[in-house]
Design a protein around this nucleic acid. Structure first.
Lengths: 236, 236, 236, 236
DNA sequence: GATGAATGAGAATTCATTCAT
DNA sequence: GATGAATGAATTCTCATTCAT
């Protein structure tokens, strides 16, 4: 009886719609969490109708997985790009820890969903998201291995525990924030965790951790000076 | 189909009923998880009917919280009792880590429920379970503090990270098992984690005062250069 | 905002509710058919709420099965009761045919549902309804077997076809009516079918032994010629 | 995910498209049944897209009707062709029964669809399929009528029941197979049903069924001998 | 104290059909 | 003629919680 507002059937290329839906879904999931989000809401936000979502995704869960996957890919791309420019073992370690903290800090809602809905489910281990996670955490191992090879790190450090130490510590430290309580400072936390973790990994018998930090400091100094030179060059 | 013979209305002392319900609930939660468990099932297992549960617990969730609380208390009692007999910093650390691993190993289902249903929710921080958790993890701090006082541990170890390092590492290491995939050996894992953690905490005297002074000098230098940079920024 | 008409929570014994639901369901199924009936409609008719149906039946289909089962039981009870009083082979045959026709005539909608929804599904063969159906049709076999024993019926009548002949004929004859087109007269039809079927079953003594011998002779002759053919094939 | 390369828009003559669609539809309907088949699947199989189907058929149901119609026509053509060569009342009856059994045996899926989707619906009586069905079953009446005229069959046989007896018996006997359970032998079943049905139709008072069979035997003999002669002629 | 009948508010999903391009 | 993106209506089922008896 009421004027059915039958929306104009706009026709969009598949790619565009996909992007719209994923963007809408990410937004709504962040606002409401997974369970409290209805397909209808996502559809409305994306400018189409409930059923149309199902032309792109077989289920609400599949949509969630794609959202998280995309987010992970973004994080990972950013991570890879920046890590390449970081020199020195301590700095690289610190960068990785800081980057993870920053990702959590920026998207606590997605992290929360990841923990509650995805990592916990049995099919996670075969999912693309898990593969991304492996790639994400693999760098740590590479760095640690090279550190061991160079003698900077403890020769007998059990590699199976390295990831757990770093990511476990980070996640445990941030879960309150992820649960919506409190806050944390990625910078300061990164310093703290890096220090502690580095102590654990370092080859104390050969060189002190202090030397390593010294090295890091020198590199920062080097960069500062280089930047200074650059400015003076540009300004000349 | 036939009129189910209404079960004899046995009148039990309140304490007995409570215990029955809690035992039944723990069993069913372990078998089915939280969501897949219905109040009806718990009631049947406890020998009464749905409605009666509500004379003892206001909601399914409250019942869950009590179940977990009781379990936690058992774990904690066991822990306190045994810890008292362990001497030496490393040994005490190792005991705490091992005990936590063992608790996880014995009750992965309850751990899983704790992670999925409880720790993640906003009211957890005010719950008795959280208080128990504080008590549980407080020992670590005490031990670490005494170690610092005695000089065995690193003077500047950031206490806020100590818990995260230990429990985060343990939880990250065991989440697969908790998710129902794979297994782990509490003994070997405890050794490994204790070693790594202890290295992190220990006071590596090799780090000489001289190095520290050197480092301090360099940092001041770094700051100077940074200030210089700042001036150029402002002046440009 | 509008006065929620929250129906008074009347409390009924389980048996009473069950009966109400089954009666309502039967009525609605007859009016609308299975697919076009919604649980909501049944619930309303039975004076309760959608969800309450599920305290009694696990699914819409299970409810249907019970409805049909009950109907079948009624038909069968009526049938057994009356059959006992019918004497003579022809009369008993006629009674069974008539009774089946009458059942169809009285409940074409349920018959239609039975054909469309139940008999066609793979789990029918294990269902109580199928068992009832077996009991229902078993009588025919008993009667026919006793007729054969007494010499009134054809000695070589293939029993596996007896049911198919009778019930197949009836069902084929009535499917139009069951589909909602046309009508039929159970009495007249029963007479007709019984006559035809009885002729098929009866021991026509007119078929003399002499004819049989003649036939046998001809068959031997036929075989001889066939053999001759075979030889030509092989020898060619 | 990647832009699916839009299939080459081949332009086909209408007749070719129609045939492709019908062939694809028949195949998919046989594999999946009616309800579980989607228009999309048929379209893919036929090498075009959903929307295009609607240039040829107004609805999924109309497409189904055409599929069944075509199948029926094939069966009927085959039937007419062969029936012409069969002599003798018993033989013709037996042929018709056997042919029907064979059709069911070869296409149980289509038979099932016919029963579930078509015959049951109210518009069936006006459909071309129904007309085909009439033509299919009309022969029986012709044969029976000629048999009555010649005195071989019972003068008072009610014609309205003849079809029901034969086709009802066949369908009842085969519904399990059609439902996907068990199997049957068309040859043996045809013999059995023909015997039983013939007894019902035969004019026992005038001539015995034995005579009729005798006639059939003689005709087979006659054919054999004719064939024998043919061979000898060919070989000469 | 105990019972257990009754409630009720959702929310995901399907796919034949339409129609803008 | 062909495409394929978009529609949209309709319905089952769940189960923690309440409350009349």
């Amino acid at each position: 009886m009421s004027a059915s507002p039958s929306p104009i059937r706009t026709r969009q290329p598949r790619e565009k719609r996909l992007a719209d839906i994923l963007a809408a879904a990410r937004a709504v999931f962040r606002e409401r969490g997974y369970d409290d989000t209805s397909i209808t809401e996502i559809a409305q936000r994306a400018g189409l109708v409930e059923g149309s979502i199902y032309r792109f995704f077989d289920s609400k869960r599949e949509l969630l997985l794609r959202v998280v996957e995309l987010w992970y890919e973004e994080v990972l791309a950013d991570y890879d790009r920046q890590l390449a420019g970081v020199r020195g073992l301590w700095n690289r370690l610190r960068f990785m820890i800081w980057h993870h903290l920053k990702s959590i800090h920026e998207n606590p809602e997605l992290v929360s969903i990841f923990f509650r809905q995805i990592r916990i489910s049995p099919d996670y281990l075969n999912s693309p998201v898990h593969e991304l996670n492996r790639r994400y955490t693999r760098h740590v191992l590479e760095i640690v291995e090279s550190g061991i090879a160079s003698g900077e790190l403890w020769r007998e450090l059990p590699l199976v525990i390295v990831r757990d130490l770093i990511y476990g510590c980070i996640e445990h430290h941030t879960w309150r924030y992820v649960s919506g309580v409190g806050n944390f400072d990625p910078e300061a936390t990164a310093d703290m965790i890096t220090d502690v973790v580095y102590r654990s990994f370092a080859n104390h018998s050969a060189e002190s951790a202090g030397l390593a930090r010294l090295e890091a400091t020198m590199m920062r100094l080097e960069e500062s000076v280089a930047r200074l030179n650059g400015r003076l060059d540009g300004g000349a």
